[in-house]
Design a protein around this nucleic acid. Structure first.
Lengths: 127, 127
DNA sequence: GCTTGACCTTCCAGTTGCTGGAAGCTCTAT
DNA sequence: ATAGAGCTTCCAGCAACTGGAAGGTCAAGC
């Protein structure tokens, strides 16, 4: 299967698939003309990557997860550890964004937002 | 005032301050020896940037906010619009992260995380 | 006056995860 | 034969810094 069909299959842009090959994640075979040729195994990995990236795992996390995916004897604890660390990171980001939102929301509400120059948002930033 | 004192004053690393000068945000005067020399006006702007970046505004947003800050006749509506757009973006990110968290949290909880190979997280990613 | 060490300067490269574009080869249909 | 789509590689750029190298400057201590 050529790259554009693989792209449709796994839901990733062809550019991204080539990039994943560049960084050694999924390396398909090649046809005589030099075209990439994806088999079912490659497609599985690409779909795996698409899902894992969609869940916000870093590419390096994905690299490890992929190797664990391919290791039939891996310990589930290894996988769980990566996922838990990522989960904690997400929780942290959510809390940070919520705090930002609260501050910003207060500022936006306090600003009448008309043609007059007085602006509590700018005043706060400049304080 | 030289750059390292300015860095202490505004709470930004010297590297970042130089970077802000590179991209045209805050351009201090120079002493005879070529050293940067920050005056009160420069420091105000740097503090402004530090606060605005801390609230998650992009550098380009900061550029606009800074020009509005310097424009005594700006309409508060202009400022409010930028802040509101940013706020909406933050809300969107929070919702996205919360959805990720829910999915990931379920996966982590369903994985016993021991030495055995069976792993619901990997299974889900590979499905 | 000399040395040492802490500053300062500029410039270049790397980070993350792609994405766009140019130049050129290949395939398919007309 | 030729047009157009699709493939290849490689290079550059995005955001927002950050690290490091090479070299100039300054203040203190001897």
């Amino acid at each position: 299967m050529n790259i554009s069909d693989a792209a449709i299959e796994c839901g990733l842009p062809a550019k991204t698939i080539r990039y994943y090959e560049d960084i050694g994640l999924v390396s398909p075979g090649r046809l005589a003309n030099g075209y990439r040729d994806y088999d079912e195994d490659d497609l599985h990995k690409l779909r795996f990557l698409q899902r894992a990236r969609g869940l916000g795992f870093s590419v390096e996390d994905c690299r490890v997860l992929l190797s664990l995916y391919e290791d039939r004897n891996r310990a589930s604890g290894d996988v769980r550890k990566i996922a838990k660390t990522h989960l904690d990171e997400i929780e942290r980001k959510i809390a940070e964004l919520q705090s930002l939102r609260d501050t910003l929301s207060d500022l936006v509400q306090s600003c009448h937002g008309d043609d007059r120059p007085n602006c509590p948002i700018i005043n706060d930033l400049a304080r």
